[in-house]
Design a protein around this nucleic acid. Sequence first.
DNA 1: GGGTCTTGCGCG
DNA 2: AAAGCGCGCAAGACCC
Length: 555
Amino acid sequence: MYVVLTRTARGATALRFDDSRARLGGADAIATAELPAWVERLEREHPRWVWDDTTRWYPHLLAAGVRVGRCVDLRLCHAILRTSALTAESALARAPRGPWDAATPLLERPETHGVLFELDDDPVIDAPIDPVAEFVLQGEAIADSEQPGRIGLLLAAESAGALIACEMKFAGLPWKNDVHERLLADLLGPRPVGVERPARLQKLLDDMRLAVGSTEINPDSPADLLKALRRAGLDVASTRSWELKQLSHPVIAPLLEYKKLSRLLTANGWNWLDTWVADGRFRPDYVPGGAATGRWGANGGGALQLPKQVRGAVVADPGWKLVVADAAQLEPRILTALSGDRRMAEAGRGDLYEGIVASGAVKSRADAKVAMLGAMYGATAGEGGRLMPALTRAFPDAIAMVEAAARAGERGESVTTQLGRSSPLPGEDWRELQESAAADGTEALRRAARGQARSWGRFTRNFIVQGTAAEWALCWMAGLRGRLWELSGGSFVERPHLVFFLHDEVIVHAPAALADSVVEQLRDAAAEAGRLIFGAMPVQFPITTAVVDDYGQAK
DNA sequence: GGGTCTTGCGCG
DNA sequence: AAAGCGCGCAAGACCC
């Protein structure tokens, strides 16, 4: 059963539909204050809650102690259906762009006429949000698609991700201020008052001044720093760390140290702690579908860039554990399954990179890794480019798959993941350059067009792998979420629950006594995700797990 | 005084 | 050894 919720001035109306999306009965009107209890009651029938945007409904429910099992996030599903090659002929995909194509849908509003807002410079005519009509339209798009099962699984996984994103923010990532502060004090010195540099940074700056024999050096300004380094006789094109590492000069060591610590201070220092951690929890906004590939984004505090340096401050509550798990070599395994490359599947029975070495394609594990990254990212030069021919000979099917995706992108076509998420098309500027270069191109113009085409090809090449990996991760998490809920009783935060997700890695916060069960569920969910997406294809998705007290202990 | 671009670096 | 994908963020540079 589906229950479609529509917001009204006083609360919501609910309409029920059966599993084939046929309408059941009349509408219920529920006042705002009654909504959590009403949802909780109906939840016993395990419906799929259909709403415009999970972030508009679910936080209130969670705050009221109500957790739901399943939902359809119409906004996220619309975004997928709008561009998917599997539903390109649907009425939804052919309709002009409207409020559902905005980054966040509009609330119901009095009907107005005329241009309401712009979407990528296209004016959009106002239309009231109608979740029921959108639900019907989406149902038709799915039913009429060539492969309803594929796209249906993707939409279910995406919607489950929307629930998880809200739940992770609600639960928060356990964070110990005192541990973090001790770490900062050890590395930087005491917290400075006002605008002065922390003692350790000031000392390094003094060392740098001594090394170049001048006080005219400001490491916080790349432009100034570059000038100062050149004045000191250093031949550098930029102030990037990897370039500075090549040089030997007394200024380099303190400068690199300064950069490292300065980064810690500005990105995850005392200000960060004051701004983003409250009540012992870090609560960023997770953004499902934030990247074109379907990967999540995050806002607030750089949640997806937590440096290894500070992970020790992520500490389980007393009596609880953190179960940290990541999918080993996920993207190359995804490529294996996508392409059906039997030899690569064989190589991936254990450590994939060792397997590639054993196949004779490359000499070392490090080479295998660089070669695989090169294949998935489109390396042309350097180590990756050099290793490509050997990799192509050993695994022709897998390489042919990414090469085909690259060629499609170079032609300006879209590519599609295993479950049906399609890449965006290049913009107007891209096409104009391609056309003008083809028509009356000077040599320089043709070169620019070729470079641009190759660049888009690298994007589509990577898209099918990164996007399908994101689908695997969503299915893994969605399955895990249900399994965790079944492990014990109690409220949401009393049971084992997800507190962090980073592309191919999750953290579960769990009562210590249940940690081993969580590990088991993580493995089962991973195996299930592979079966769901790839069926019988014999590709393994091993995960590594660690049961720890703090995140710094994992890996 | 604001807004946007650039640089550099953190994560996968 | 330093190119080849996807992101977010902070600070300075640069503009009006």
